[in-house]
Nucleic acid binder design. Structure first.
Lengths: 212, 212
DNA sequence: GTCTATACAGTGATAGAC
DNA sequence: GTCTATCACTGTATAGAC
């Protein structure tokens, strides 16, 4: 029943709310978007937002989850394939498996446009919002990729590996928030270029030589 | 007159508001902190916040500026010294000059504790808040450091330099937001360790070899 | 100039009728 | 499931006291 609603062209109230909320979150950010504006844009009653999602934060969670779930699934699947095909995956292969699903986004150009902007917006929200949001979804992915990196860099101390992973995530968030770096003219292909630059940057950072 | 107020022990209304606001912003974040809570904690009237700072955002700007200004001044001074002493500063020297002022914070342990947490909080706020906040203060510092890096890496294309600077900034923000990486036990010395790890990571990322 | 009391429009949330 | 009505709270503005 709910599957049918999700498949129908015009969608049920729940889907209309999520679509309107996503666009407004991307455009104005979370806190600057009121539930009244969402309800108006979706053509539903204000109380329907709280009926379906419990709270404004619940709505944000649902909107974010809808977009990030396929990415993290693809990340896990890509790592499975990689560890199946290669006896010793390289750092570059692991980083590519982790970062490139953002570019693919199921080959859907709408998703490719919306996901990074939504994720960038959300990851820029205060920690009180982002932490509970990410903890449920991201812990498994982060754990499996850190383990794969540890196998590819056996001489690296675990503490150092965690720091470098931390910084790589920071670069990814920065890229999604601002797909064009300071001083660079905006471009349609900016995200793709940046993602490849980030892979190179992170690979060098992970595999760095000992400090002189 | 205003200088005397700033020097006095108990401070004027303006200083009391800024002190209370800083602590609450660090603890709860910007949007979760109401002007009423700030006024109550500072022991002043609600309207005094708007009289002195014009708006909640104006108050945030003043609080942030008070902490970030000495850091950026020190960054510029350190780069001046470096370019004075060394004919060809290395990437590591430049990165150290850029990142270590955060650790020094005028040798004031209170500042060392508050600045990264405040900056981390603020940089995590939505772009609509952070962009105007940073544009005024950070552009000069970023420009001078990118120029210094360009001289140290003459073979590197400007576009690639900008990307790598972008990712280094992302790592710095991530470090200030979460001074302890995922899975690591918290520690008093976490920020200092992370800063050194970030310098190593960024140096390797900037000076990376061509892609195989 | 500095500060206070007060009012206003807009917010997220909720109870209860239909 | 959906709607109306309402609540407590927010940032902001202003008139007036000192």
């Amino acid at each position: 029943m709910s599957a049918m609603a999700a498949l129908s062209e015009e969608g049920g109230t729940r889907e209309k709310i999520m679509d309107a909320a996503e666009d407004l979150f991307i455009e104005k950010g979370y806190s600057a978007t009121s539930l009244r504006a969402i309800a108006t844009a979706a053509g539903v009653n204000l109380a329907a937002t709280n009926y379906h999602f419990g709270s404004k934060f619940g709505l944000l969670t649902a909107v974010f989850h809808r977009r990030i779930k396929p990415i993290d699934d693809e990340r896990l699947a890509a790592l499975d394939r990689l560890e199946d095909e290669e006896a010793d995956p390289t750092v570059r292969q692991i980083m590519t498996a982790f970062l490139s699903p953002i570019l693919r986004a199921d080959n859907d150009p709408v998703l490719l446009d919306k996901l990074p902007r939504l994720a960038g917006r959300i990851m820029g929200e205060p920690e009180t919002l982002t932490k509970p949001l990410l903890e449920g979804e991201f812990t498994e992915v982060a754990g499996r990729y850190q383990a794969a990196l540890a196998r590819a860099l056996p001489q690296l101390a675990l503490a150092d590996l965690r720091w470098r992973f931390h910084f790589m995530i920071g670069g990814m968030i920065q890229l999604m928030r601002l797909p064009t770096p300071l001083g660079q003219p905006p471009s349609d292909d900016s995200l793709r270029q940046g993602m490849h630059a980030l892979i190179d940057f992170a690979v060098a950072g992970f595999a760095q030589e000992a400090r002189p």
